[in-house]
């Protein structure tokens, strides 16, 4: 059996936009998001599911984009860190990472921020143990994790405050 090199034209729903891309079936979602969609916030560390740097949200849930083929993502809503905020208007989670020193080199940060955001969307008021368990699949080689946990607690408080002011 000769394996095919043929490309397939697919549409990916990324960050609220439809992206038309032409891909080989073997191309990983992580690579397609980076190369074809230009979303360089998707970081690639290990390509075997261990580090969590490539985390994106699929229909609101965190997944490893290095363990999924782009052709499989058709029909799903994808969210990358680029959708969260802008330099002027950071998402409360990003703002909290900044204020609590939740990053140093920043390699793990998109995955951390997206996982934290998905957690807070499900559970607006998590305790420290829940935060640690939830982020256990995202490795950080710089911070020692404490400041990341602090940042998520701070983000939860900020979001509660924002909600109160909005109400």
């Amino acid at each position: 059996m000769v394996a095919t090199e043929e490309r397939v034209a697919i549409t990916l729903a990324v960050n609220g936009r439809d992206e038309q891309v032409s891909v080989e079936p073997r191309w990983l979602l992580s690579d397609v998001l980076r190369r074809e969609c230009g979303l360089k916030g998707v970081h690639v560390g290990c390509e075997h599911g261990v580090c969590g740097a490539c985390t994106v949200l699929l229909d609101g849930e965190p997944i490893r984009s290095c363990l999924m083929f782009a052709v499989q993502a058709v029909g799903h809503q994808l969210t990358t860190v680029e959708a969260l905020g802008t330099a002027d208007h950071l998402d409360p989670v990003q703002q909290a990472f900044w204020e609590a020193h939740g990053l140093q080199c920043g390699f793990c940060t998109p995955g951390m921020v997206l996982t934290a955001r998905a957690l807070l969307d499900r559970n607006p008021n998590p305790d420290e143990e829940t935060i640690r368990e939830t982020l256990s699949g995202n490795l950080c080689r710089c911070t020692g994790y404490q400041f990341i946990v602090d940042a998520v607690l701070l983000a939860a408080a900020k979001r509660a405050e924002d909600a109160e002011q909005g109400a």
Binding site: M1, A3, T4, V8, R26, D31, E47, V71, Q72
Partner: peptide, 25 residues
């Protein structure tokens, strides 16, 4: 590293999936 090339099939029924697997050996 990256996977080798393969043909991708996305069936909607178990029977189709079995047919693809049988044909592929």
């Amino acid at each position: 590293m990256k996977p080798v090339r393969f043909r991708y099939e996305a069936p909607h029924t178990v029977e189709e999936a079995v047919d693809h697997l049988s044909a592929a050996g």
